[in-house]
């Protein structure tokens, strides 16, 4: 049983947490691709920027002496999401909208998004330096340990408070997004525009409004993903820049333009990464008792060494592009 609990701690919980973050980021990327037809690289900066906004708000709360029962990062999250959505709208207005007006190709917008990435990255580093910050300087990070001796495990089940909240918040957001896309007028208009932008325009759908709503959702969910990542690990200027490719991989594996695909893709990549570096000997060690001597398990038995963890996402990405470029949910074709 100890082995099974270890597996839960190492793979199920961390895979789920990673999957949530990837999924939330990938939803934004896939929605922007569906509506505006370009790969938005600066999404990482919406995430990092959002996380820094949340951090500033949390620090302000701490400075005013406001104590909250759950981590302050989660309390300030709604305000941070609103600010991040405004930031996303501003970025679109300042950088992408003029190019779209000129009728620039998607590739030009892609390059412009690299420019935006560099600018925001530069600004964040300018103001915050290159160091890392923690949300838990003024409050403890609570860790729940569930004693599993009852089922014969010597190890406890370990999960931190932010992780529990993160999984819950993701679940709620995904459900909210689902209802928005399938029940609301604007959500349906968004799907319509992703399906056929010309027809959406002809139907009288206010496409400029749909574009704005897309940026609002992308900015808000990006901020959520970034903040939660920062709550789980630490906040640094290249927080999301380092994981933007796995997020793209999640969006592509799920099928670009497909919101549900992005969620599935995020979970898939998250679990693939944790499973690939998991040391299987830890789980299979009881087998040593029944295996003959020459077949004893080596001390480490992982599919790939830990330092190649991020590479797993790229390999899945490349294989997906080769075998099924439309992704599992049939997104935009290549």
């Amino acid at each position: 049983m100890t082995e099974l609990i270890f597996f839960t701690n190492q793979v199920i919980i961390s895979g789920l947490v990673l999957g949530c973050i990837y999924a939330l980021g990938a939803i934004g990327i896939t929605l922007i691709f569906g509506i505006l037809r370009f790969a938005h690289f600066a999404h990482s900066e919406l995430m990092t920027g959002g996380a820094f906004i949340a951090f500033l708000l949390a620090s302000a709360f701490a400075a005013w002496g406001i104590v909250t029962p759950i981590p302050t990062g989660f309390v300030v999250l709604p305000i941070a999401m609103v600010l991040a959505a405004i930031m996303a709208l501003g970025i679109d207005k300042g950088f992408y909208a003029p190019l779209r007006k000129r009728g620039a190709k998607p590739v030009t917008l892609l390059i412009a998004s690299i420019g935006v990435t560099l600018m925001i990255q530069g600004l964040i580093r300018l103001f915050f330096g290159a160091g890392s910050y923690s949300f838990f300087e003024h409050e403890p990070k609570e860790v729940f340990r569930f004693d599993m001796a009852g089922i014969g495990s010597t190890r406890p089940l370990v999960i931190t408070e932010p992780q529990v909240l993160m999984i819950l918040v993701t679940l709620v957001s995904v459900l909210a997004l689902h209802f928005f896309l399938t029940r609301s007028r604007l959500g349906k208009a968004m799907r319509a525009m992703a399906d056929n932008a010309d027809l959406a325009q002809v139907s009288g759908i206010n496409t400029a409004l749909v574009v704005r709503v897309t940026w609002i959702i992308a900015g808000a969910l990006g901020c959520m993903a970034g903040t939660m990542l920062a709550l789980d690990v630490t906040l640094k200027p290249d927080l999301a820049f380092n994981i933007i490719l796995p997020i793209f991989a999640a969006a592509i594996v799920g099928g670009l333009g497909q919101a549900y695909g992005a969620i599935a893709g995020g979970m898939l990549i998250g679990f693939a990464e944790t499973l690939a570096v998991f040391n299987w000997t830890m789980l299979l060690r009881p087998l040593n008792a029944i295996l003959p001597d020459w077949m004893q398990l080596p001390p480490t038995l992982a599919l790939v060494p830990t330092e190649y963890k991020l590479t797993v996402a790229f390999v899945i990405l490349v294989v997906t592009l080769l075998v099924r470029p439309t992704g599992i949910f049939k997104g935009a074709s290549s």
Partner: peptide, 19 residues
Amino acid sequence: KNVFTSMSVEENLEMGAFT
């Protein structure tokens, strides 16, 4: 390309009434 292929017939009609 005069229908939204991924949306249901009813949703297509709803889109006509967007305004």
